[in-house]
Design a protein around this nucleic acid. Structure first.
Lengths: 169, 169
DNA sequence: CTTATGTATGTAATATCATAACAGGTCAAG
DNA sequence: CTTGACCTGTTATGATATTACATACATAAG
């Protein structure tokens, strides 16, 4: 296995757009997920682990039914709740995120770090990257405060063109 | 009819949370919608106008099927495309917005002004207000630029408590 | 006036996304 | 070895959204 420092995907996981040894990147993420769940007592069961692996296969968002189809191939249940429950678990644990714009899910690129990410969604290749949302969220809270509104959760997503697709266009 | 300056809803339309003469607020919005569509040649047909009126009845987001039910009561078609098409038209014309988090739609509070709003969604009373998204969007674009990503559209939404519900809690 | 054209509306059918309710299984604590 | 918490599976249904096609209606060209 290559040294982590050789892998742009692991060194800067928000750069989903950069070419990188993705199998390494995914393997590493599973390891971190194992450690994190072990630490909190949460149970990364076979279905949940498999769902995370599926999400990790690409830096894209998958719909619940896409995940479900893959699960069924592997001999797990093939009814929607099976997928939705595993996805909900992963999201609750901070191991995955829901992309509102796509009604879809993607593996977290910063497992274990406290973060409220923004998502960069390429409209051409459908790659999804995480970006720091802190500045945007702070700006949003300033505006909200003007209206006396107390922010609890934010959805910050951008649709556009990733570097590669931008070059082609 | 009261003078516009008597109506907080019209004076500061993003303050959906403030008490205001809403019938005036809605009436005014329809007038602006008429003027704007007339100016661009777009046709504010009866269905479309009625959908806008329905959205304007409250500062809340309505699902397409809620809108559809109201339309059907008024003798319009009662199949989903009737509602979805009218809503799409209104969104395209900048007369309404889609709230991703709720899979629902709300009348625009700033018709005619170029704006990419952020939405403040109260999780208790479900009121939706528009806030300035420019600062948040700028912050998001800075982060996106670091990844070489070109932002085209943004979704910026906050879920939380409006002033009134906050006081009660 | 009539016809051609583009646009809007109506409807049927279907696709896609999501949850409620309940049954059975596993496993560790008492 | 039983209880209780949690996980998985299944049935059924609900909620959201689109495709495809038919019809109507306005307007402008002939």
């Amino acid at each position: 296995m290559p040294n982590p420092h050789d892998c742009p995907g692991c060194a800067a996981p928000d750069l989903a757009f950069a070419a990188h040894d993705h199998s390494h990147c995914a393997h590493d993420a599973i390891q971190r997920a194992e450690a994190l769940t072990a630490a909190t007592g949460a149970r990364l069961t076979p279905v949940r682990r498999r769902v995370l692996e599926i999400l990790l296969e690409e830096h894209k968002a998958l719909g619940a039914y896409d995940v479900l189809a893959r699960l069924a191939q592997d001999g797990f249940g093939n009814q929607p709740p099976v997928a939705y429950r595993a996805l909900e678990f992963l999201v609750d644990q901070g191991l995955a995120h829901r992309i509102q714009r796509l009604n879809a899910f993607t593996a977290c690129a910063h497992m274990g770090e406290v973060h409220a990410p923004a998502f960069l969604i390429c409209r051409t290749c459908h790659t999804v990257a995480e970006a720091a949302a802190t500045p945007a969220r702070a700006a949003l809270e300033v505006e909200a405060a003007k209206a006396g509104f107390q922010v609890e959760r934010t959805t910050i997503e951008a649709l556009g063109l990733c570097p590669a697709c931008r070059t082609q266009a």
